[in-house]
């Protein structure tokens, strides 16, 4: 189902000529981007290239200083806050688990955009939380305090909270930072299985080899601009990596998946 939908429908999130940044400096300026529906988009680029800034701007966590971010064809600012949160879920880089909170209570907070002043909790919310816990593989941790979990478990709990929002679009801002390789793979496997079930997923990543393995659509950024975009096989070349990261390298083929692996050239110094 997802494949046909994504071919027929246009991008649900797009930025037109946006400038995003902090008080005194624009990190991203004059940028256009469309997030393809139903794909697993991975944004890569060197440190401080603006990839997280772009994601935050697309998810209205940073204001746009110029240009417009559109959600389903209308400026994102024209929607009520809860309406956006019913369409677009975002896992930020370093969310804080309130002191002593247990997993199911944290995940339950993802239901906020579906609740009202009087309708604070319904059986639907119970079902959504149970489904999200199951989907993120943390159902057996439901009654454990979040502080006691390992980094990988905690990250899956936060993803479960975003899943409880039941949004068709999901943004993950560097979800694998601080995780060991096994947990990185675990989180990205989850992202891929969500995409295969029809979610539109956008992930900001540092780890190039994993980005190439999982992305169905790759966005490469440098100095606040997009330098390449498209399918991994069409986009990734040694020249591109050297241009973007300043790192002479060779690409070899991943024997598992056939995707490119970056091998830095041996230093001559």
């Amino acid at each position: 189902m997802s494949a046909t939908v994504s071919e027929q429908s246009g991008p649900r999130v797009r930025a037109r000529d946006v400038t995003i940044g902090y008080a005194d400096r624009a990190v991203v300026s004059g940028l256009d981007v469309a997030i393809p529906t139903g794909e697993l988009t991975v944004i890569i680029g060197p440190n401080a290239c603006g990839k997280s800034t772009l994601l935050r701007g697309l998810a209205r966590m940073l204001p746009t200083r110029a240009g417009v971010v559109e959600l389903d064809g209308a400026p994102i600012g024209s929607y009520p806050a809860k309406e956006i949160a019913r369409r677009l879920g975002m896992l930020p880089q370093s969310p804080i688990a309130p002191d002593g909170i247990v997993v199911e209570d944290l995940v339950a907070r993802g239901r906020y955009p579906h609740q009202g002043l009087l309708r604070q909790w319904t059986p639907q919310d119970d079902d959504a939380v149970a489904g999200a816990l199951e989907r993120a593989g943390v159902a057996d941790l439901a009654t454990r305090p979040v502080d006691e979990l390992s980094g990988g478990q905690r990250q899956r709990v936060w993803i479960a909270m975003a899943l409880a929002q039941q949004t068709p679009i999901l943004f993950l801002d560097e979800p694998t930072t601080y995780l060991d390789i096994a947990h990185q793979v675990e989180v990205l496997d989850l992202a891929r299985s969500l995409q295969r079930d029809g979610f539109t997923v956008v992930v900001v990543l540092h780890e190039l080899n994993l980005a190439f393995r999982y992305a169905t659509h790759l966005v490469v950024m440098k100095a606040g601009a997009i330098v390449a975009e498209g399918a991994v096989a069409d986009v990734v070349t040694p020249e591109l990596i050297e241009e973007v990261y300043g790192l002479p390298c060779r690409l070899v083929t991943d024997p598992e998946t056939g995707t490119p692996l970056v091998v830095p050239k041996a230093s001559t110094r």
Partner: peptide, 23 residues
């Protein structure tokens, strides 16, 4: 009492709070 619900969510950090639809 009404504001305590979004306030509870804001203890997760501003970005997480915005993410679930809090102004």
């Amino acid at each position: 009492v009404v504001l305590s619900r979004p306030l509870g969510a804001m203890t997760m950090g501003d970005e997480a709070a915005i993410g679930i639809g809090i102004r």
